[in-house]
């Protein structure tokens, strides 16, 4: 290593430093201008949508005027970033509204730019564009692209296949349960949540035929998804499906079953079954959850609680003791704790 070599190295790293300074300056200027532009687009779009949904008959808002105003704030084919921002606003609005206005919006979206931007994205190579394109298609309910989107339901990229599967629910509703619980790859908790919510918002009337068919699935995520659907739609007739899974060997399936059963109040017979399950479930955390559910949803069954007071887990025993103590059985709790000490021991109590 020579001095000249080190000097050259210093010059190189100094050059990199200068490049960073320039980048920081450019970024700051760009951000400032961009924020202003985005604000303008948002204000214009908010005004257009509100006027379109509640049009003034004396001074109607025409599509040509809408397009001119959008153009004036930079929504042009060449300006992809602005177009993308507009799409985000469109989705945000569409997701906010239901009923007749939802269809009014859909009609508006068909007449304003960006006409085919989402569809173009799904034919691109990168996962990000594809997944974004699919999301835009289902969020804006562009059902004409349904078949193109379905092709991606088993894509190797998790985001692409996730969006495609959600699209399936948006376009097919309950019938999508024909496929969903049988998918090859695992689905995330978020996907389950989103599927249930899309069903609830867009197809509020349950179609039991598809739900019951899906019960045959042996996929764990499928079982969890179905239990969440039963819970969300409060399908009392389907409670047995959840109850069946309270003793499932998989921890997470049991956890979902316990979570879902808590939505329902049960008959005495079913509650007796839950009490039996409580004694068989091997995990104390889940036992505590069940105990809480039993306590909050049934009358005090002193025999049951006294039996649990003699169990193995100290924390559960403490929970049981609290229930008995607060429900008029103080003496039973005292009796239980006193009997643990030898008869001739000197207790520090008066």
């Amino acid at each position: 290593m020579t001095e000249a070599g080190v000097l050259l190295f210093i010059q190189c790293v100094l050059a990199i430093l200068v490049i960073y300074w320039i980048s920081i300056a450019i970024t700051m200027v760009y951000r400032k201008n961009r924020m202003r532009a985005l604000e303008r687009i948002e204000h214009t779009f908010a005004d257009i949508v509100s006027r379109y949904l509640y049009n003034n008959e004396d001074d109607p808002l025409l599509i040509s005027e809408i397009n001119d105003r959008l153009k004036a704030v930079g929504i042009r084919k060449g300006n992809r970033n602005n177009v993308q921002y507009l799409i985000r606003l469109m989705i945000r609005t569409q997701r906010t509204i239901l009923g007749e206005n939802y269809y009014k919006l859909k009609k508006l979206y068909a007449q304003i730019p960006p006409y085919n931007a989402s569809f173009t994205k799904i034919s691109k190579w990168g996962w990000y564009s594809r997944a974004r394109g699919i999301r835009e298609i289902y969020e804006m309910n562009q059902s004409q692209y349904m078949n193109e989107v379905f092709k991606f339901q088993n894509n190797k990229n998790v985001f692409v296949r996730r969006e495609a599967q959600i699209a399936m629910v948006v376009f097919m509703g309950w019938e999508s349960l024909r496929f969903l619980p049988y998918l090859k790859r695992n689905i995330t908790l978020w996907q389950q949540i989103k599927i249930v919510e899309k069903l609830y918002d867009l197809y509020p009337k349950p179609e039991m035929k598809w739900l019951k068919r899906a019960y045959k699935t042996d996929k764990l995520f499928g079982k969890k998804l179905l239990m969440r659907i039963i819970r969300k739609f409060e399908l009392h007739t389907e409670i047995p499906f959840i109850m069946e899974h309270l003793e499932h060997p998989d921890y997470e399936v049991r956890e979902t079953a316990i979570y879902c059963i808590q939505t329902f109040a049960l008959s005495t017979e079913r509650m007796d079954y839950i009490k039996d399950v409580y004694e068989r479930v091997a995990n104390p955390v889940q036992q505590a959850q069940l105990l809480n559910y039993i306590y909050e949803n049934s009358d005090i069954d002193v025999d049951f609680y006294l039996r649990q007071l003699h169990g193995d887990n100290d924390e559960l025993k403490l929970n049981v003791a609290e229930i008995l103590w607060n429900n008029g059985h103080k003496e039973k709790v005292q009796e239980f704790y006193y009997q643990q000490y030898p008869e001739n021991s000197n207790l520090n109590v008066e």
């Binding site: 948002e42 204000h43 779009f45 509100s50 509640y54 906010t96 509204i97």
Partner: peptide, 16 residues
Amino acid sequence: EDLIILKILERLVTVN
């Protein structure tokens, strides 16, 4: 806080 919902609701109220 959401500008779009704000504008829509404002309009809804005004037409009523």
